[in-house]
Amino acid sequence: MTGTDIDLVRLPALEPGAADPPAAAAESTGRGRFSRLRGWLSAPGALVSAVFLLLVLCWAAVPGLLAPFDPVSDLDSAAAMAGPSSQHWFGTDPLGRDVYSRVVHGSRLSMLAAGLAVTISVTAGAVLGVLAGYVGRWLDSLLMRTVDVLVAIPGLLLSMVVVSMLGFGVVNVAVAVGVAGIPGFARIMRAETLRILSRPYLDAARTSGLGHVAIMVRHVLPNASGALAVLAALELGGAILAVSALSFLGFGAVPPTPEWGALVNDGRGYIASAWWLTALPGAVIAATVIAINRLSREIGVVQR
C-alpha cells in the first residue's frame, strides 16, 4: 500500500464528526454495486428464492410455452384423478386436467391480482401518509384515527366485507386486498415523512423557494421510497396469500379459470383420496410467498 491509497477509500467513521471521509471515486461505486450483487448471490437462500420467483414470473408471462397441456380444454378423462407422474407432474384432477398446467396458468391471475392489490395499497397508503405527516394537525388526526379503526379489523375480514360490497371476481378481490393493506403503508409513510421533514435538507429546500407539492414529490417521496419498497415486497407475499384465500373461499376466479386459491378449493373435496390436488398448488403458493419474503429482506439490506 502506498501513501496515496488512503485517500481513495473511505475509512469507517471513527473520528469525531467524521467530517471528511475521502470521496469515493465514481468507479469505486460501480465496483461497490457489483460486489453487492456478488454478496447477494453468495447467500444461497436468496439465490434459490430469486431463481424460483423468476420461474413463477415466467409462468405468469408465457404460460402457454411452459405448461405441457391446456389448463381448461385438455380433458384426459382416461387419466382422471391420477397421481403425480412423469407425464402429469402434479397429477390430474377429476376432469382429467393436468394440475401442473393449471398451476402454471393460474400464476398469471394470482400474480396480477396480488400486484394490483399491492399497487393500490402503496399508492393510497403513500398519499395518505404523506398528507398526514406533512400537513399534520387535524388532517393527521383524522387520517390516522381512521387508519387505527381499519387496523382494528382483521385484514381478511375487511377484504371480505369489501368484496361483498363490490361483488365477486378476481379484480374485486384484488381491490379488497389492496384496501386492507392501506393502513400499514399509510403508517410507514407518515413516519418516514416526519423523519424526512426534520432533516436539514428540507430546510434547504424551503429556503430554495420550493412549494409544498414540490417538496413532497421531489424530496419526501424519493427518500421514503426505500422503506416503502421493503414493505411492498413483504406485502406482495401477503397479498398472494390473501388473494388465494379469498379465491379459496369462492370470492374470486370463476371456474374453470385457473387461479391458485381456486385450485386448492377445487381439490378440497378430494383431500383424502387425491392429496396432490390441494398439496401441490398449496406448496407452490407457500414457496412463492417464502421466496418473496426472503428477497424483500435482501431489498432491506441493499437499501441500507
Binding site: 436539514p200 435538507y201 434547504a204 429546500a205 429556503t207 414540490a214 421531489r218
Partner: peptide, 26 residues
C-alpha cells in the same frame, strides 16, 4: 443559508448539481 452538517443538508437521493440548481428552478 449554509447549514451546519454538510452531509444532511443535501438530499441523499439527488445529485449535487441538481441540488445547486434547485433554487434556480424555484
Amino acid at each position: 443559508p449554509v447549514f451546519q452538517d454538510p452531509y444532511s443538508s443535501f438530499d441523499p437521493r439527488r445529485t449535487i448539481g441538481a441540488s445547486i440548481a434547485e433554487p434556480l428552478g424555484a
